[in-house]
């Protein structure tokens, strides 16, 4: 037992106990990722298909929510236009931390085939993105793969770690 006074939380002490808590929390977190449906265009249909009967996204604990306050992950599914860019930032700001973003489909990644005046060339110009998911439109399996990758990423977190500020302010 330590003789000197010690703040175990601040010094990240008590490794055994906390790793277990970490694991437990991460287990809960990864298996109940609630998703903010951000259906914008074609990919939204595939997102719906992955939530529907054949692909059954509920197996992963992914439940679609319509409110940003209840969501952990935002799946940006579809083309983001300049007129809409303001609203995606608003909804991202309204989500409670910790929060993650999956950019689904080429249009959300880079603007895709819509190399025009009206399309935001990549949703990462507006909000920080954690996982880029290629395809036009990605199949539901691809979306599930992306969620599995995100779960893998989440398992590396510790509970007292604050979400680092991401690239975009």
């Amino acid at each position: 037992m330590a003789q000197h006074p010690m703040n175990s939380v601040a010094n990240a002490g008590l490794p055994v106990a906390l790793t277990t808590v970490d694991k437990l929390v991460n287990w809960g977190r990864t298996n109940s990722l609630w998703v903010l449906t951000y259906g914008l265009a074609c990919c939204a249909i595939e997102m719906m298909a992955s939530g529907a009967s054949r692909y059954d996204f509920d197996r992963f604990g992914v439940i679609f929510r319509a409110s940003p306050r209840q969501a952990d992950v935002m799946i940006v599914a579809g083309t983001l236009t300049k007129k809409h860019a303001e609203f995606i930032r608003r909804l991202y700001d309204q989500m409670a931390e910790p929060k993650w973003v999956i950019s689904m489909g080429s249009c959300a990644n880079t603007g895709g085939m819509f190399n025009t005046y009206a399309t935001v060339q990549g949703v990462d110009r507006v909000i920080p993105v954690d996982i880029y998911l290629p395809g036009c439109a990605p199949r539901p399996e691809t979306l599930q793969y992306a969620v599995m990758l995100l779960q893998k990423k989440l398992r590396k977190r510790t509970i007292f770690q604050k979400q680092k500020p991401k690239r975009l302010v």
């Binding site: 025009t116 005046y117 507006v126 975009l168 302010v169």
Partner: peptide
């Protein structure tokens, strides 16, 4: 132009973050 004029190309950055963020983004 198909790719938009200058106002169009910076539209979302100007609107959300402000002109001073053009260099950062």
């Amino acid at each position: 132009p198909l790719h938009g004029d200058e106002a169009a190309q910076w539209y979302e950055v100007d609107k959300i973050f402000g002109k001073e963020y053009r260099d950062i983004i």
